[in-house]
Design a protein around this nucleic acid. Structure first.
Length: 131
RNA sequence: UUGGAAGAGCGGGUGAUCGCUCGGGGCGUGAGCCUCGGGAGGAAAGUCCGAACUCCACAGGGCGCGAUGCUGAGGAAACCGGUUGCACCGGACGAAAGUUCGGGAACGCCGGCAUGACCGCAGGCGCUUCGGGUGAAAGCCCGUUGCGACAGACAGUGCCACAGAAAACAAACCGCCGGCGGUCGCAAGGCCGCAGGUCAGGGUGAAAAGGCGGGGUAAGAGCCCACCGCCCGCAUUGCGAAAUGCGGGGCACGGAAAACCUCAUCGGGAGCAAGGCCAAAUAGGGGACCCUGGACGGCCCGUCCAUGCCGGCGAAAGCUGGCGGGUCCCGGGUAUCGGCUGCUGAGACAAAUGAUCGCCGCGUUCCGAAAGGGACGAACAGAACUCGGCUUACAGCUCUUCCAAGACC
C-alpha cells in the first residue's frame, strides 16, 4: 500500500535552476562528487518549495542529438526520485562523455549511487516500494 | 527471379502509466488544479548562394575590391495585394445529428516576380566513342556515344618538373650535305680533323614550332606551288552562340587564365546577438587631445554645404579665453545570458517535443518435418525570425525505367 499516497512526480519550472548566477554559485561554492557518467554539484537550499535541478551538457559529449538525450535522461532520473532527497537541495548534474551509450536505467543507478555517497539519499521506507 | 545503374517516395504503427511545453475553456482569494487541442527533419545539419525583413549609410567621377562568364526561351518560396474561407471562437435555430450568421485566417488559386557557380529544355562550338562515306594520304563530311565554370594565352609580366642537343626572341646529339687540310688507294672512293650548311630521318618528351604530295636543292627548308588546316578582313544568313562564301597573309599563333592579368556585365554595409519598447533621468562626474568638419563607412580628385555665441587685445587681419562641439579613456548608475516585443496554426531562452512497458509490423539468425516459437537488430540525425536553391550524412523498405544473368512458355 506504499504507492497509494504517492507524491506526484512533477517537474515544473519552479523545480529547475534557471539563472546563470545560480549555476556559477554551485560551481564555485557547492559540493562536488563524480560518479560514473555524471558529476554532481550540490548545495543546501533555503527555499522551502523543494529541491531544484540544473543540467549541464557540454559540447564535448557529442552532437546535439546526444546532448539532448543526456539532458533528458538526467532530468528523468531526478524527476523519478525527487522525493527521496533529504531536505531541500539545489543540484547541478553535469553529463560526462561516457553517458552517450548508457540506458536510462544505468544513468539512474549512477545518480542514486552519487546521492547515497554524499548522504543526500533518504534510505527510508520507500527503499523498494513495489519493483 | 537475382544483381547493378538512374530517378521518385517512405523513414515503423498502436496502446497504457509517469512527465514537459504552448494555446483555448472552466474552477480557485491564491499557489495551483481540471479539461480540450497543437508540439522536430528529409536533411531541422553545413552555412556555399540568393530572397524577405530590420537598422545604418547614400550628390558626382575615377581607382580599387568582390562576384559572374557559349547562346536562346522558360521555371521558386517566404513576403505583399486580391480571392476562397479549413482548424478554432462567438451568436441564432434545433431534442439531437446538424444548419445558418459573424469573426478568423492556414493550405490552395491569381497577380506583384525579378536572380543564380540552381533546375531541366532547345541549340552552337570544342574534344571524344563507335559506325559509314569520300580521298593516295593527311584530312573532310554524315550519323552516333560521352564530356566541357565554354570570354581572352597574336595586350602585357611571369611559369612549364623529369627526360632531352634544344621547351618559346627555339635548338645541331646522332644522321645528311658540300668545302678545306691530312692520310690510304691506280681510280671510284674510304678514314681522320677543321670551319660551316641543314631539320627530311633517328632518339627524348605531355608537347619538338602547320599536314600531305610535288617542284626545288650540295643536302634541305612555305624556299616555291596545289589541296587541307590556321590567322586577318569583308559580305550574306541566323533573335543569338555561330555558320557559309569571297578576298588577303606563307604561317608570325605550344600549354596553363584555378599565377598575375585583360575584357564585358553586375554589386552599398551589417545582421534577429538585426531592430523596437520598458525602468531612472528635460539625469550626467573626472581626465587627455582637437576645433575645420561633413558629403566619404577603403583611397584620391575637383566640387558643394556649413564654419556658431560671448569676452579680452588690436585700426584691421588675426591672436587668445570661455560657452559650445567632436574623439578617446576612466568613473557613477545597475536587470547584465534583465523583462516585453520582433516570434509564428511547433515557438523555447540553462533552451519543451520525453521516459518506461506491452502488442502488432519489418530485417537477420537459431530450433522445428510443418504449424509455430526463441534471440538479436532497426540508420543519419534534434527546430531557435522566415523562405527557395545547393552540398554533405543516411539502416531498411516501396515504385518506375534501363542493363546483365538465369528459369519457364
Amino acid at each position: 500500500m506504499a504507492s497509494a499516497p504517492r507524491h506526484r512526480l512533477r517537474f515544473g519550472r519552479d523545480r529547475r535552476l534557471r539563472a546563470s548566477r545560480e549555476f556559477s554559485r554551485l560551481k564555485s561554492d557547492g559540493q562536488r562528487w563524480v560518479q560514473g557518467c555524471l558529476i554532481l554539484n550540490w548545495a543546501l537550499s533555503t527555499r522551502p518549495t523543494g529541491s531544484r535541478l540544473g543540467v549541464v551538457t557540454g559540447r564535448r559529449i557529442g552532437p546535439s542529438v546526444v546532448r539532448s538525450r543526456a539532458r533528458r535522461l538526467l532530468r528523468e532520473a531526478f524527476r523519478r526520485n525527487q522525493h527521496r532527497i533529504t531536505g531541500s537541495v539545489d543540484l547541478v548534474l553535469v553529463a560526462r562523455p561516457s553517458i552517450a551509450p548508457r540506458t536510462a536505467d544505468a544513468v539512474e543507478r549512477d545518480y542514486l549511487l552519487a546521492l547515497k555517497r554524499v548522504g543526500l539519499l533518504r534510505e527510508a521506507v520507500t527503499e523498494t516500494p513495489t519493483a
